[in-house]
Design a protein around this nucleic acid. Structure first.
Lengths: 397, 397
DNA sequence: CACAATAATTACACAGTGTAAATATAACGG
DNA sequence: CCGTTATATTTACACTGTGTAATTATTGTG
C-alpha cells in the first residue's frame, strides 16, 4: 500500500514532525513515527532533510533499553524567532529560539486607552531597537508573532478599537520580509500552555480556557485541532444584568463590569497592577473586611453564571480558569460553581464538568507570543513562507 | 508539477467532486474543475469512475456558447437514501434520492416529553414499515441520517434528556448495515439550506442561523467548512434574567422561557402547533390586543439581547432568523435589533451586522435529514463506508 | 565476542495528480 | 455542405510522497 487516508504534502509532513518535536521538546524517532502516523522510513527521510537545513539536531543519547534508539531528536536552538505582545499594561518585544529560550526582551508601558497612532510609533521604535540587536549578532528572524487582546475573526476589537485592516497593513510593512502572524492573546496563551509547561497544565481534552484580567476572555481549546483553529470566546461583554453596572464598552450589566481586574481592584482597594503580582493566595495577604469578601464572591457568582451560559451555547467537558480568581481560596471559588449551577444545563455537576485553576502567568510576556511564533514556524514546515507559498497562488490564478 | 498544497486521497477527490454536484444540482465539467481545484484531466478520470459506478449521470445538453461543453453532469437519481427527523411534534421517516426528491414518507406524532423507551419502540415500528417498502421495490438504502434537536458534541441533550451512548448503540443496531449519521436538527437545517433552496437563502458568507421554535437553537455556518464541522449554538438556555421566569430545564430566566413557541403561544392564545402553520404575517390574521403585541416585542427584545451576547462570544457578520419571529411584521421585529443594540459590542449597526429572516419551513420534514444524508453519502465519496474504512483501521493497529 | 533486539537507511512499488499532446464536439461563416 | 474556430475531453507520461521489505547499524547481554 502507498498513501494514507489523508495524504500529505511534504510541507505538511514536515509540519507534523516538527510540531511533534515542539510539543514534546525532543523525542526519539520511533516515538515521532507513532505520533505522526508515519513509518520509520518516512521519518528518516524527513529528518534527514530537516537536519541538512539545520532545523533539527540529533543529540547522542542512547535510550536505556536493549536495541533502543541512540539519538534524541530536538529542534535546533539556532532558529531565531520573535514574539511581540500587547497587553493593557505594556508592549513587549522578545527574540528567542524554538526551545522557548528568550534571549532579548524589551518592554515599554502603554495605556489601556492606547491610540492606534501612538501604538504605531512605539512599535516602530521598539522594532528599530530590536533590529539593531539582531544586526549586531548577524541574526535573521525566521518568524514573528504578535498577540493582542480581542483580536478575532471579525474586524472588531473590544479592547483596542482600532482599524484592524490598517493594523495588518502597518505590521506587514514594518516587519518587512519577516513572516508575521497576528493572533488573539488567549490563543497565544493556549500555545504557551500546549508547548511550554504542558505537564503543569490541568486540562487534557477539549476545554474552555478562561482568562480573567483586564477583560474576560476565553478560548475553546480543541485538543485535536491546530492552534490557529481555536475559537476565541470573548466572554467579557455578555450582558447579565439588564440596566446593571456601566461597562467601559458603553453597555450596562456586562460581565466585565463586575469581574474585570479594574472592578475587583476597586473592591479590595489595591491597584490593578498589584493584584495579580501578589501571587498565591493574595487574599490571605490582605485583610479586608467580610463585606469585601462577600462582594468578591458575588462577582465570582456572575463569572460562573456567564461561564455556564457560554457552555450552554457550546458544551465542553472542562474549564480552566486563570487570572485573579485563581488566587482566591478554593472556598471562595465555590461561588463560581454556584453561578454555573444556575445557568449550566442540568446544573453544575463535577462529574460532568471539570473545573481547574491555574496561576496567572504574569510578567513572562512576550513568552506566549514567542511560543505562538514557534508554532507558526513549525506549522509552515520550517519553510520560508514566501518561497513556498507561490505555487499555491499560481494555482488560484 | 504534481500534487497541490494539500494532496487528496481518491476518496476525498470523489467527495469534493460529488459535493460540488450536490451544491449546484448538476454542472458542466469546466465548472467542476474550477470549483474543486482539479484539472480537467483529473475531473475526467474521477467522473469516468463515478459514471461506471452509477453515481453520476451525464445528460446531453450542449452549453449555448461556441465550443462549450456538451454534457451536463448530475448526480444519479437512483441512489436511495433515507432521512429521519425527530422534532417535538413528530418522528418522520423518508426515502429519497440525491436530488432531494422524497419518494416515501411516514410521520408519527410524538410528545415533546417523549421517553427513550417509547422512542425506540416507535423507531423500530417505522423502520419495519420502511423496510417493507424498500424490499418490495428491491431497493437498498445507501445512507441514512437522523436528526434531532439538541444533539451535540457533549453527551447531553436539553430537549430529549436521553442516554446518548445508548441511543447511538440502538440506532446502529436498528439500522443494521445501513450507514447512519446522527446530527443536530439545526445542522440538518443548514444542510437543507446549503443544498436545496440555495438561492432563496438570504446569507452568503459565514453567519449564525437561528431557529426559534420549541427551543432556541442556532448553528454557526462556516461557508468554507464542511457541514459536519458546523457548531450547534444552543441559545435557548442562556440565563438572561436572574430569578426570572421558570424554564422547563429547571432554571430561571432562560431565553427559552420567554421566546419558545410555548411561551409565545400562551401570549397570543393560539395552540403551539398552529402558530407556525399560519404562515406569512400570522400576526395580521389575528386580532389580539395591543398588550399582547407589546409583550411579544418584549420577548423579541430578549431574543435580541441573547443573540447579541452570543455574537459577542463569537463574532459573525450576519444572522439569519427562522421561526415565529419571521412571521411578524418588520416593524415588530425591530425589537430584536433593539435588544441586540444593548448587548452587541458597539451596539447594533446594520452596516456591521446583517440580519435577515426566512420563513420557517414547516411540514417538509424529513427533508432536512434527507439532505444531510445526501451530504454524508457524497462526503464519503459515494464509497461504502464499511468497505473502504478498513485500511484506516489497519493503520491504527 | 557473538547474539539479540531494535533502530535507521535505502531500493523499489504504488497512488494520485498535473502537463501536454492528441482527439472530439459543435457553432459559425461562407 | 464544409472548413474554421474555440473549447471540451481523453490519454500517455512524469513527478511527489509514501509504504514495504530488505539491508545495514547500534548496543546491551551472556
Amino acid at each position: 500500500m502507498a498513501g494514507r487516508a489523508a495524504p500529505r504534502s511534504r510541507r505538511e509532513t514536515r509540519a507534523v514532525v516538527l510540531e511533534s518535536l515542539l510539543r514534546n521538546d525532543g523525542a526519539f524517532r520511533p516515538h515521532i513515527a507513532r505520533e505522526t502516523q508515519l513509518t520509520e522510513a518516512s521519518v528518516s527521510r524527513i529528518l534527514a532533510e530537516l537536519r541538512n537545513e539545520g532545523i533539527v539536531q540529533e543529540i547522542r543519547q542512547p535510550a536505556p533499553y536493549l536495541g533502543g534508539p541512540t539519538a534524541l531528536v530536538t529542534l535546533s536552538k539556532n532558529i531565531p524567532i520573535a514574539g511581540i505582545e500587547l497587553s493593557n499594561n505594556r508592549l513587549s518585544f522578545g527574540i528567542g529560539d524554538l526551545g522557548g529560550n528568550l534571549d532579548y526582551v524589551e518592554r515599554v508601558p502603554v495605556s489601556p486607552q492606547l491610540k492606534q497612532a501612538e501604538f504605531e510609533r512605539l512599535f516602530v521604535d521598539c522594532l528599530a531597537t530590536m533590529d539593531q540587536w539582531t544586526c549586531r549578532r548577524g541574526i535573521a528572524v525566521r518568524q514573528a508573532a504578535f498577540s493582542l487582546p480581542g483580536y478575532g475573526s471579525a474586524d472588531t476589537n473590544a479592547i483596542f478599537p482600532w482599524d484592524m485592516q490598517r493594523l495588518r497593513g502597518f505590521l506587514a510593512e514594518a516587519l518587512e520580509g519577516v513572516p508575521l502572524a497576528v493572533t488573539n492573546s488567549v490563543i497565544a496563551q493556549a500555545a504557551f500552555h500546549r508547548y511550554s509547561d504542558r505537564d503543569a497544565y490541568p486540562a487534557v481534552g477539549d476545554h474552555l480556557f478562561l482568562f480573567v484580567g483586564h477583560g474576560v476572555a476565553g478560548v475553546i481549546v480543541n485538543e485535536s485541532a491546530p492552534i490557529e483553529a481555536f475559537s476565541p470566546f470573548e466572554l467579557g461583554h455578555m450582558v447579565l444584568e439588564r440596566g446593571g453596572a456601566l461597562c467601559r464598552c458603553g453597555h450596562r450589566g456586562c460581565l466585565e463590569a463586575y469581574t474585570s481586574l479594574a472592578a475587583v481592584s476597586e473592591i479590595i482597594g489595591l491597584p490593578e497592577t498589584e493584584v495579580l503580582q501578589r501571587g498565591d493566595r493574595f487574599i490571605d495577604t490582605l485583610n479586608f473586611d467580610q463585606g469585601a469578601r462577600e462582594r468578591l464572591r458575588e462577582r465570582l457568582f456572575l463569572l460562573g453564571l456567564g461561564t455556564g451560559n457560554a457552555l450552554n451555547l457550546h458544551p465542553l467537558p472542562s474549564v480552566v480558569v486563570s487570572g485573579w480568581p485563581s488566587l482566591l481560596s478554593p472556598d471562595d471559588r465555590e461561588a463560581i460553581m454556584e453561578g454555573m449551577d444556575q445557568s449550566l444545563l442540568g446544573g453544575f455537576d463535577p462529574e460532568r464538568l471539570g473545573i481547574s485553576f491555574i496561576a496567572p502567568s504574569i510578567g513572562n510576556d512576550p513568552r506566549a507570543a514567542l511560543y505562538y511564533a514557534a508554532y507558526c514556524f513549525v506549522r509552515a514546515g520550517g519553510l520560508d513562507a514566501r518561497s513556498e507559498q507561490r505555487p499555491l497562488e499560481e494555482e488560484n490564478a
